[in-house]
Design a protein around this nucleic acid. Sequence first.
DNA 1: TTGTAGGCGTTATCAT
DNA 2: ATGATAACGCCTACAA
Lengths: 340, 340
Amino acid sequence: MSTMQDVANKAGVSKATVSRVLSGKGYVSQETKDQVFKAIEEAGYRPNLLARNLATSKSMCIGLVVTNTLYNGNYFSELISQAAKKLDANGRQLILVDGKHSAEEEREAIQFLHDLRCDGIIIYPRFLSVDEMDDIIDKYNKPVMVVNRKLRKHQSHCIYCDHKGSGLQSTRALIERGHRNIAFITGSMDSPTAIERLSGYKEALSAAGLPVNDALIIPGKWTPASGAAAVEALLAGGQTFSAILASNDDMAIGAMKKLNEAGIAVPADVSVIGFDNIPTAPFLIPALSSVKDPVSDMVSEVISQIISMLDGGYLSDQNKFVSELILRESVTSGPYLKPR
Amino acid sequence: MSTMQDVANKAGVSKATVSRVLSGKGYVSQETKDQVFKAIEEAGYRPNLLARNLATSKSMCIGLVVTNTLYNGNYFSELISQAAKKLDANGRQLILVDGKHSAEEEREAIQFLHDLRCDGIIIYPRFLSVDEMDDIIDKYNKPVMVVNRKLRKHQSHCIYCDHKGSGLQSTRALIERGHRNIAFITGSMDSPTAIERLSGYKEALSAAGLPVNDALIIPGKWTPASGAAAVEALLAGGQTFSAILASNDDMAIGAMKKLNEAGIAVPADVSVIGFDNIPTAPFLIPALSSVKDPVSDMVSEVISQIISMLDGGYLSDQNKFVSELILRESVTSGPYLKPR
DNA sequence: TTGTAGGCGTTATCAT
DNA sequence: ATGATAACGCCTACAA
């Protein structure tokens, strides 16, 4: 690997001059510029980014910590592609690090990014508490932004979506359309998102003066299989319900399948709403309504803010995103269903 | 940020000693070790990986170039999560770089990884020609592996899946089950994968003495919408067909939807096979057969080989993967269908 | 406009 | 067992 010194020798100038030519800063005569470029060409010279970053203590890289359990399908790919695209448009690179399966490992991932001297860090947390993240933001001297969580202290360093509100909104939509017995399939309950969606559901019921029936709340694990199992449990329990609110589309899909197998029509007999609005779902199940989780918007905003911080700008406080309920035929009122 | 020198001062030793303690190489008395650790703790010291990498010219990072058009759903997320997991198990990090929309940009992505002094590079190419990749492998002095393409020169630096073979295999399966008029929905024809799958289809027909009917070959673009459009074109053209082979599952899903809308039953009237075997598809369409693309296996193998090279090992030549045809009810022979 | 020299934070090779 | 000291390759005042 040829270095800057090699180029300098070949061009008959000093390292500093080569550096100037490359960075475009400082004055350099056109003549020497040409010589230098020629030498660069001849030497097949390529700058060593490690050395440059060390010297400047900048890396033009933004780290993203995502925890493994999220590495799933459309949601994840949209998150990543959005981040990569947006950063790239700013001449920066994305470094993706896996937060794996625990708070400790999420901490390590952040530490790694820190040790790598990333210009900024985006955390899409799974196990880390908001308080700890507030601490991390305090300690770290470069921009850190948290996605999908509302922080207590550093309110402008996070961006989130009102999951409780969307649980409330979608439940309310079902109620308004005449549903009284609405089953709810939860996500993994170690996830704040799952908890918030459930609480929105409960609150909407209470607000409408409807009872919260625990037998209609079935634990799921975000997967299609767990959605199917939930419906199976519902049917086995002989529950009466005319609608199902599943905490994500994958589970809604699993639920749909079980309903079909049981000869229960959607939406004629029962209505289903999911969350996330994955693109292929409505293609297959026109009847599936969904609450669109605004991942791309959130990621996009987070990156804008990091870049703004790096450029010495201020952070906005507009950090709460709302998700949009996309109603399809599904929510038309079905008959109260007592499965056979 | 405190440096090694700070720690050394605090502990009353030299930088070199601190370095020894940290790396575990060389002798250092237990006593000084303790002092150093204490000093590290007090100073909140964290090693600067940039400096370390510069000094060692190693980065413990492996770069992965994936082109944007692949940033899609399950296939992509499986690719990434597999890579991240496997590398992590070897104490290394994944750096994901976007190859964007052209050969030039793919080149730049590789260059970037090179300049970053990654220990190795994995290329999942889209626009780069195999010849150019052979050149790149020649020039680069660290491990480079290419996924999903068969190279001419560096046969052991690539790993690929026999897409033609799987097109052949799935077409043959349909023929064996009595289908004579098999429609084919292509992928984007600028993709070698799409071309190979199509050629497998044609070859299987010819081998069985069946005519290749161009009117049954409809161009698609990998998306569900294009799959739906393809079926629409098929129906509009009044074509007779009892089976559809779609070049991926997303298009198969779109095709299924159109068939349903047209009142054509799957598999009773027509059989459908897709490619990739995305996990939610069979959940939605039990009748959808699919050819499983062995992404995870390929990525896993590629990483093993890179790690082996880094450790001075040899490369295996077992670099051809076969995909598995997963038959569901779909391929039972349907009646020759002349759409109304 | 160009060159010199010191620094970025490590590692690694010598001595001691 | 420990300490100087020279790399690693680049940037950046400061001088010339």
